[in-house]
Amino acid sequence: MSGKKIKVVLAKPGLDGHDRGVKVIARSLVEHGMEVVYLGLQQTPEAIVNAAIEEDADVIGLSVLSGSHMTQFKRVRELMLEHGIGDRLLTGGGIIPDKDRDRLVELGIGRLFGPGADIDEIANYIKEWAESRSAGTAET
């Protein structure tokens, strides 16, 4: 079981108490062999990026069901770039209208998943991203 594992930091930013979805995602990513650091509810963007740095996470996943996705995803992305971890994947999900989704993707944020998304598809998306990244850098 040694060798590189995909490490994912999962969090719910802001004032949003609906954590059932993110827990299901956490569980299924673990079942796909990933190491998932779960931060829980009411996280600030600063705390999330700080955790991603210390954990050397490949992926940050945010769950936002409160409607504040534009602010939260944008801020986390800004902080990632500011702190020099812009090469990691920022992805996530929630109740996000298509037009917002497009705007977020333009900001360099990865795919965003909505209600009814297939869990295996999310895991496979992360795996494919990680493969293309390691192919690029030939690192760990």
Binding site: V30, H32, V36
Partner: peptide
């Protein structure tokens, strides 16, 4: 699965920053 759920940080939020 070889995966892991790492949940200890939830209890260590006082030291952020």
């Amino acid at each position: 699965s070889g995966g892991a759920f790492l949940g200890d940080r939830i209890r260590m939020q006082d030291h952020i920053g």
